[in-house]
């Protein structure tokens, strides 16, 4: 055996030991755990945590699109003060966000439970009907909202055509029909309607999953005790789906409060900036109006509510697990 190949064997043996040592290290849960978390942690740090901090900083400056760095100045809380003190649209936006979220959430909740109970009672065609009622939630929101834009069209709205036909059929004369997206209140109602249309299936399908975990014996026991249908719904069904209700509500409130697409497509915040939500107003200020710092401040106004919902969710889940 030549010297070289012996040396080679020793090196191979050495590399092997090193390799085995590395492998042994990977067997330790602490080492492997951190290693496996690394890709997710990297993305979250670089594209979530860092942008969040960057956004907070931006909101404290006068940064604008295309502004040279030498002119970017730290302005402290000026943007926030400007929004709260001198910006009427901002207050409309804040009001709209709460109204939109509140009304849409309550209606989606009621419709969702109702639809879930109906679906749960279903014997035939359950899969088909379930797929059909799920569609609004599944398809890309902007694409279905385009259909609503045409349904709410000022001149060719199918709703108004139907109202007109109905009036003349009843002999009540000519009626033009409302401008669905032209009046501030009606426009906000229309936007809320589309949100309800899109979100109800999510509630229903989640509640349906919750209903299916309820022990049928409970209904039987309640029936034997003489509980009416409503009582059974109130004392068995609702408590039975409570865990999933909390999760669904928190999730839905976050998504609705931070909604962008429906308003963007239907009204762009109009007429006369009356239907903005925080997200669309932030977009308008930052991307259309180029004032990045001010826009970042607008979107950060969502943060306290979102943080509150997230913390509540965490505490609730922890308590459930314990």
């Amino acid at each position: 055996m030549s010297k070289e190949s012996r040396a080679g064997q020793i090196t191979v043996a050495w590399t092997k030991t090193r390799y085995n040592a590395a492998l042994a290290l990977l067997e330790r849960p602490s080492v492997l755990g951190y290693l496996l978390m690394l890709p997710a942690a990297f993305v979250i740090f670089l594209f979530v945590a860092y942008p969040f901090a960057w956004g907070v900083w931006m909101s404290l400056t006068n940064k604008q699109i295309g502004m040279p760095w030498s002119q970017v100045k730290f302005t402290g809380l000026q943007n926030y003060v400007d929004l709260v003190m001198n910006d009427g649209v901002f207050w409309t936006t804040a009001w709209n966000s709460f109204v939109y979220t509140g009304i849409a959430t309550v209606i989606k909740w009621i419709l969702g439970i109702w639809l879930a109970v109906l679906l749960n009672r279903m014997v035939r065609f359950q899969r088909t009907v379930r797929a059909a009622v799920l569609l609004p939630w599944i398809v890309p929101t902007v694409l279905s909202t385009i259909a609503f834009l045409w349904i709410f069209d000022p001149d060719f709205s199918v709703i108004n055509w139907t109202i007109r036909r109905f009036y003349s059929w009843m002999g009540w004369g000519y009626v033009k029909g409302p401008l669905w997206l032209g009046d501030p209140t009606l426009a906000l109602a229309s936007v809320t309607f589309v949100n309800i249309w899109r979100g109800t299936p999510f509630y229903a399908i989640s509640f349906l999953a919750g209903l299916q975990t309820i022990n049928p014996d409970l209904y039987e026991a309640a029936a034997i005790d003489g509980a009416s249908g409503w009582q059974r719904f109130w004392y068995v069904t609702l408590p039975g789906i409570k865990p999933i209700t909390v999760v669904v509500l928190v999730f839905s409130i976050i998504v609705t409060f931070a909604d962008f697409q429906i308003v963007y497509v239907l009204t762009r915040g109009g007429p006369a900036n009356s239907t903005h939500l925080f997200a669309t107003y932030a977009y308008q200020v930052a991307m259309v109006g180029s004032r990045l710092g001010l826009g970042a401040a607008v979107s950060l106004f969502m943060f306290p509510i979102l943080a509150l919902m997230i913390i509540y969710q965490l505490i609730y889940l922890r308590r459930e697990q314990a």
Binding site: S30, G33, V48, P51, F52, I254, A282, S299, I310
Partner: peptide, 27 residues
């Protein structure tokens, strides 16, 4: 795997899941 900080990671990921894109799009 049981390792120190696993719970924190879990919470962090859950929080990130709930953060809506509209909060972060400008930065």
């Amino acid at each position: 795997l049981r390792f120190r900080g696993a719970d924190t990671f879990g919470v962090l990921i859950f929080v990130t899941y709930l953060v809506p894109p509209t909060l972060l799009f400008i930065p």
